[in-house]
């Protein structure tokens, strides 16, 4: 009797696991099956036509890559520097460290739509308008949504990801290495740059990739900070708006005059976005697993 109860219990937990895996398989399978049809070289390289009902999605891919690129060159170096500060300079038991660390952790759980509000209120209304008042009085140059401000907003959103990942790997580097290096007459900075950072490299890579994958997939923060439904031309300046894969999916799903007609294009766009974020996440997971094997050896 007891054996029966035990077995049933294990079977139920297994069933729950399978349900979750099945859900993933259904979503991915559905998108792959319907997304394949429309996929072609032309789809990836051409601009949308006839109100999104024909043509490709190149501007959205271009805009997403541009956004993620601008975001990473801000989020990664700054995130790494903050992580170095946390792991190597800040006193772990100090109140300052505990509070700031808590703020960073909290930030990782704040809804992304709030970051959108922040981007609008801080980058566009405050910084952008400030720049315009000083450099371009009477004109609207930086005080409006643009790829620059969307990227900055996304950078603030992904900063905690970078900080937390890099700090964790830096803390995982054994104290012995720091002592050995300092005992040889190296300065703290030399120790960090030559011994600690090279060993935490996988953490920097993982953090960067996770940030990029999040940046490519999130839509809420760019809703009001720079994404546009349709633009006739690719953005060439930092203060222009841009098209974005995720936003494109949202807009096509909700604002298209003929949903049935846009469906194939919509599915293929989803497919492209999924492949992009999936590959990024997979790389991050692989790097992390390999790193775990190194550190446990």
């Amino acid at each position: 009797m007891r054996r029966m109860v035990d077995r049933t219990f294990v079977a139920m937990t297994l069933a729950a696991t399978l349900v979750i895996l099945a859900m993933i398989a259904i979503i991915l399978g559905n998108v792959v099956i319907h997304g394949r049809d429309r996929l072609s070289w032309e789809f990836l390289t051409a601009a949308p036509e006839q109100g999104m009902m024909a043509g490709g999605i190149f501007p959205a891919i271009y805009g997403t890559v541009l956004l993620v690129f601008l975001m990473s060159i801000v989020a990664v170096p700054f995130g790494v520097l903050v992580a170095i500060y946390f792991a190597e300079y800040a006193r772990a038991e100090s109140r300052l460290y505990r509070w700031t660390r808590m703020a960073v952790n909290n930030l990782a759980g704040v809804p992304s739509i709030v970051f959108g509000l922040f981007g609008l209120g801080f980058f566009i209304q405050t910084i952008g308008h400030g720049i315009d008042q000083v450099l371009y009085p009477g004109y609207l140059v930086y005080g409006q949504p643009s790829v620059l401000w969307a990227a900055m907003t996304m950078a603030v959103l992904t900063l905690p990801v970078v900080i937390i990942t890099v700090e964790e790997t830096m803390r995982a580097v054994p104290q012995e290495y720091r002592e050995a290096s300092l005992a040889l007459g190296a300065t703290r900075l030399q120790t960090i740059l030559r011994v600690i950072l090279p060993q935490a490299w996988s953490g920097v890579m993982t953090g960067a990739i996770l940030a990029i994958s999040r940046g490519a997939g999130e839509v809420a923060p760019v809703l009001f900070t720079g994404a546009a439904y349709f633009l006739p031309q690719l953005p060439t300046r930092a203060n222009e708006q841009f098209m974005h894969l995720g936003y494109h999916i949202y807009a096509m799903s909700t604002q298209s005059p003929d949903v049935e007609a846009t469906k194939p294009i919509l599915y293929s766009t989803v497919f492209v976005l999924l492949v992009l974020t999936f590959l990024l996440n997979l790389t991050a997971i692989l790097i992390r697993n390999r790193m775990r094997r190194w550190t446990t050896r």
Partner: peptide, 13 residues
């Protein structure tokens, strides 16, 4: 992998 699926894709689905 499920965590990595963008929420807009889940919403779309």
């Amino acid at each position: 992998v499920l965590a990595g699926i963008p929420s807009v894709v889940i919403g779309f689905f």
